[in-house]
Amino acid sequence: MRDMVAADASRVMTELRRGVVEHCVLALIGEGESYAFDIVKVLAARHLVTSEGTIYPLLARLRRDGLVATNWRESNSGPPRRYYRLTDDGRRALDVFVAEWSAFRTAVDALLNARVAAEVRDGR
């Protein structure tokens, strides 16, 4: 039973990550032109991706959807590298998400905190 609960929580987190990660990618790119390898490293360090490779299909899609654009830059070590930057649409998508996420997070935190408070009150 405990295992089932844990597996369920893990599935929920996978789905949550999936919806949120693309906006984290937009946010990272929004800080300045970014190299995909660096984006993946940041996301992995924060445990936001389990399979690092999944970011590449995501980047391809964001580019196809016009949220990010790329250009090639010479590299000191090896072949030219593809750098990503936000388009105006990408910037707008990020702004919309930031506003909605903030309200969403506040609401969820308030509900979870209320539950904790009730448990403390009921002596559970």
């Binding site: 999936r18 693309e22 937009l26 399979s51 995501l58 899609r61 949220l67 990408g90 998508a93 998400f97």
Partner: peptide
């Protein structure tokens, strides 16, 4: 795993888009 994650979702544009 990379392909199964479906992050490219060809038939379905990204949620941001």
């Amino acid at each position: 795993a990379i392909i199964a994650a479906g992050m490219f979702e060809d038939d379905q544009p990204s949620t941001a888009a």
